[in-house]
């Protein structure tokens, strides 16, 4: 594995639902220790593309390479085994379980190996969860708190912590700052920077261009199931916003020639 190999390479991904062409041949690359912003108007295909990468959808065409190796993913578990973790917009947390229970959901540590009847090692999981939260500088009073008692920002932090708990290669965040207070948004963005500082490779989907601008190294714009823009995040925020919106609404298109029909 060299630093020049991309962590993720998606080639010519196509996906349709009934008569709707959701993805019409998208290429996407994520490099090591890079934060990639993925934007686009509603129905541009960003969520579909990320669901393909996280194993929730199987593409009609195209291939996916993880660290240069071609992979096939039939479900989210496959993706997770390959080190791809998704933080879902609706968070996918169980409110009735505590922070530890959610961080380890589906991957409980056991002290006695008995398959489904395996005995959980609660102390080890609590300690691990605590360690994880402090490593990510997440302020939650106790890992024993039920998730239903956490604020929106804390819940998002738990969801992100879970995604980083098992040596993941890629973390995908779907609208991590949607429906959060201003203070919570800055907490989540700090968390993303912290993850990058610790070497993570991250893809962020967001409607909030200033958030993308604030944390991303590179930006990909999708429109109507195609990639229309792919370049580093540079310039000042106003110029950036103007340029991205132009791509989002179709006024500019870098890959118009490559588009087929």
């Amino acid at each position: 594995m060299t630093e020049t190999t991309a962590v993720v390479e998606m080639r010519n991904i196509k996906k349709h639902f009934a008569a709707v062409e959701a993805l019409r041949g998208v290429d996407l690359e994520l490099r090591h220790n890079e934060v990639l912003g993925l934007v686009g108007d509603n129905a541009a295909g960003k969520s579909t593309l990320m669901k393909v990468l996280s194993g929730a959808y199987i593409p009609d065409e195209g291939e996916i390479l993880i660290e240069g190796e071609k992979v096939h993913m039939a479900n989210p578990l496959d993706a997770r085994r390959l080190g791809i973790e998704m933080v879902y917009q609706d968070l996918a947390l169980a409110n009735n379980l505590d922070v530890t229970g959610n961080v380890f959901l589906g991957r409980e540590a056991v002290s006695i190996e008995l398959g489904p009847l395996g005995v959980m090692d609660n102390h080890r999981m609590e300690q691990e969860a605590q360690r994880l939260l402090s490593r990510l500088k997440i302020a939650i009073p106790s890992v024993r708190l039920l998730v239903e008692r956490l604020s929106g920002g804390q819940r998002q932090a738990v969801a992100i912590a879970r995604a980083t708990a098992f040596d993941s290669k890629v973390i995908i965040m779907d609208e991590p700052t949607a429906a959060l207070s201003v203070a919570a948004i800055s907490q989540v963005l700090d968390l993303v920077r912290e993850l990058k500082a610790q070497g993570a490779s991250i893809i962020i989907i967001s409607h909030r261009l200033e958030d993308i601008y604030g944390v991303s190294d590179r930006l990909v714009v999708l429109r109507q199931g195609r990639k229309v823009h792919d370049c580093p995040v540079v310039g000042d925020l106003d110029e950036f916003r103007e340029r991205v919106v132009a791509y989002m609404i179709g006024a500019r298109d870098d890959f118009a020639n490559a588009a087929v029909g």
Binding site: P76, L77, R80, M86, Y88, D90, L91, A92, L93, A94, N95, N96, L97, G101, L105, G106, R107, E108, V110, L114, G115, P116, L117, G118, V119, M120
Partner: peptide, 23 residues
Amino acid sequence: RTVVGRHIYAVGGNPEAAELNGI
């Protein structure tokens, strides 16, 4: 105490989340 017990409560708390986490 067991994994399957935890999974039963997870399914009750949020079935979609449980499914996404491989339960």
